[in-house]
C-alpha cells in the first residue's frame, strides 16, 4: 500500500492529500525498513518549512518608512533647536558691566561708588553755596537802593507837573 503510494509520489502523480498521508506515515515510528531511507527526505522538507525569515524582515514597509521619516524629523528638529540656541548664544545681549572709575581705579562695589558720589555731590553743593554768597550780598545792596529809586520817581513826577503848569 505505502510502497505503491511512494512509487506514485516519485512519478509526481500523487495528490496533495496523498502526499499528506505519506508525510504522516514517515513522521510516525512505524516505517517499514525498506522505506527507512526515505524518511530523511520528508524530514528535510519538514526542516525547510521551519526556515523562516527572521525578525527584521517582518517590519514591513510602512513602519520602516515611518521609522525613516521619524529619524529625519528628529534630526531636523534637533538641528533647528541647535540653531536657535546657537543664535541666542551669539546674539545674547552683552550684560552691561556696571562699574565706576574713581581716580583711575575701577570700583565694582555699587554701594561704595554711590557713597563716594554722594560725598562728591555734597561738596559740590557746598561749593555752590559758597559761590552764591556774594550774590546774596548784592541782593542786600539792591534792597537798600530801593528808597533811592523812589526818590528818583518822585523827582520825575515833579518835573512832569511843572511842565504841565507852564502850558
Amino acid at each position: 500500500m505505502m510502497n505503491e503510494l511512494l512509487e506514485k509520489y516519485f512519478r509526481a502523480e500523487t495528490s496533495l492529500t496523498e502526499e499528506q498521508e505519506l508525510k504522516h506515515y514517515f513522521s510516525t515510528g512505524n516505517v517499514s525498513p525498506a522505506h527507512e531511507m526515505y524518511r530523511a527526505l520528508f524530514d528535510a522538507f519538514e526542516q525547510e518549512k521551519q526556515d523562516i525569515a527572521i525578525e527584521p524582515l517582518k517590519k514591513v514597509i510602512r513602519s520602516k518608512r515611518k521609522e525613516g521619516i521619524g529619524w529625519i524629523k528628529i534630526l531636523s528638529y534637533s538641528g533647528i533647536a541647535a540653531a536657535i540656541v546657537l543664535a541666542f548664544w551669539i546674539q545674547r545681549p552683552q550684560q552691561p558691566e556696571n562699574y565706576a572709575v574713581i581716580h583711575g581705579t575701577r570700583i565694582d562695589n555699587p554701594e561704595y561708588a554711590q557713597r563716594y558720589a554722594e560725598r562728591k555731590m555734597n561738596s559740590v553743593n557746598e561749593m555752590l553755596k559758597e559761590g552764591l554768597r556774594p550774590m546774596q550780598a548784592m541782593e542786600a545792596v539792591k534792597q537798600s537802593l530801593q528808597p533811592l529809586k523812589k526818590i528818583k520817581e518822585t523827582h520825575g513826577n515833579i518835573i512832569e507837573t511843572e511842565k504841565d503848569s507852564q502850558h
Binding site: L57, I61, R62
Partner: peptide, 16 residues
C-alpha cells in the same frame, strides 16, 4: 498599510 503589511506578513516566510 495595515492591510498591505498583513498580506506580506502572511507570505513573507514563503517568499523568503
Amino acid at each position: 498599510s495595515i492591510q498591505f503589511n498583513n498580506q506580506i506578513l502572511n507570505h513573507s516566510d514563503q517568499l523568503f
